[in-house]
């Protein structure tokens, strides 16, 4: 059976026309990506829930006032809202965004494969720790692009729209991130194998 999926644009149109169930579909479709993006920045489930909620409250209000302009895609637009709310949160709390490993979740811990043997698991865990340290060494702008691309599975177009830079700049930052990682690996002769 063909997998027919209604486009975001059509769902938004339906929602603006009064079909409330369209919102549920949009949330379900994008909740992981948006929530994951927020969590990758604030590293706290409760705060992520709050920002996620505030993001969609803004979305709902914008759509209900017919202020939404379908020039770009729906997801990058929401990601941009979430991004701004994250910045507001850090401004309020005057904290710099840090990735902290918690018992609840670590963005770096999900790299392991459940089918690995115990030995390979230990190696994989060590590789994760090493990569985490390496990524932390990167300049903030490069780290941001790398995490969005590799951990959030965002396209470069989405990254450029979320961070407010051109696609070429995002591509350049990714390239420099990889180059810098390689330099650090070579310099310290780090072995990343599994």
């Amino acid at each position: 059976m063909a997998n027919l999926q209604i486009s975001d644009a059509l769902l938004v149109k339906d929602y603006m026309a009064g079909n409330e169930s369209a919102l549920a579909v949009l949330i379900k479709r994008h909740e992981s990506k948006i929530y994951g993006f927020i969590y990758s920045k604030v590293a706290d489930r409760e705060i992520s829930n709050d920002i996620f909620q505030d993001t969609f409250i803004k979305v709902i209000k914008t759509l209900k006032t017919n202020s939404y302009n379908e020039e770009g895609k729906f997801l990058p637009w929401i990601m941009r809202i979430a991004h701004n709310l994250i910045i507001d949160y850090f401004r309020r709390s005057k904290k710099m965004p840090l990735f902290r490993e918690t018992e609840e979740f670590s963005i770096f811990s999900v790299m392991s494969d459940n089918t690995l043997t115990i030995e390979n698991q230990i190696i994989a865990d060590q590789v994760e720790v090493d990569i985490r340290r390496l990524v932390e060494e990167l300049p903030v702008d490069q780290k941001e692009v790398l995490i969005m691309r590799m951990y959030q599975d965002m396209s470069f177009k989405e990254i450029s729209e979320t961070t407010g830079v051109s696609i070429n700049t995002a591509l350049g930052r990714m390239r420099y991130a990889i180059m810098n990682l390689r330099k650090i690996i070579d310099k310290h002769q780090i072995v990343l194998t599994n």
Partner: peptide, 20 residues
């Protein structure tokens, strides 16, 4: 390997329910 797994993190059901 990581790309497929990071999508699993989701907001609380209460949050989504509140929004709807």
């Amino acid at each position: 390997k990581k790309l497929k797994i990071t999508k699993k993190i989701k907001p609380d059901k209460e949050v989504v329910s509140f929004l709807l």
